[in-house]
Amino acid sequence: MMDHDKLITVEDITVKYDRITALKHIQFDIFPGDFIAVVGVNGSGKTTLAKSILNLLRIHEGRVVWHNGTKIGYLPQHAGLEDRHFPATVFEVVSSGLLKDKAFPKWLNKADRNIIFDMLRLFDIETLADKRIGSLSGGQQQRALLARSMVMNPDILILDEPTNALDQESRGRFMQLLKSLNLENKLTIMMITHDVASVESYANRILYLEKHLLFDGSFEKFCETQPFSPYIHTHPKRFDKKGETS
């Protein structure tokens, strides 16, 4: 594929925290339309990889290239939920996604408000616009934060364990939402998760991380070639079932 078809190129990066190496010689490309799931055990460098791509960390070797001004939306782990009583409404939170692109004095014009309300509608939280963000349920909060990342109209969305705090039902709905953004809005998605089974029917590409990049390919291929990865042990039932049906 030609270079200009890529959104992001990760060129052989190594990242260290003090003396501990978090990532070793990671190399891959992100193409438009990808739905990537980054999987790995705790401490395998998943979040570090996301932060490296976002330029939030010092990269010791290699580099990350954003092609043609790729715009990245980011949904951090445990985003904004530390203080449940923080006085910010859903509308305020979503509008903060526009903060970077606006010129001083950064007042919202009518077009901005329309974009924000379109997003609120898309994520089915329009009626909650004036509610305090901390008063929402986990699923609603996560959708509000997703809306915040989406108002800037990003080319790629990076999500760090977005479904951790959600119950089973909300999790399914959230994943459906991501999938429809991926298919209908042609949004590229890179999602970090420790639960590979949860992305089975959504991701078209799995990156399996253990400081090194151990695997890069489809879910089916992942199950075939990585039978002894920690996942297979932690999800025996899931994979047994898969074996039966196929």
Partner: peptide
Amino acid sequence: FKELKLFIFDEPFFVSLGF
């Protein structure tokens, strides 16, 4: 004001915007 508000509310997201 807006930068301070977002920074205090959600530092990682604020930094991810390039601030």
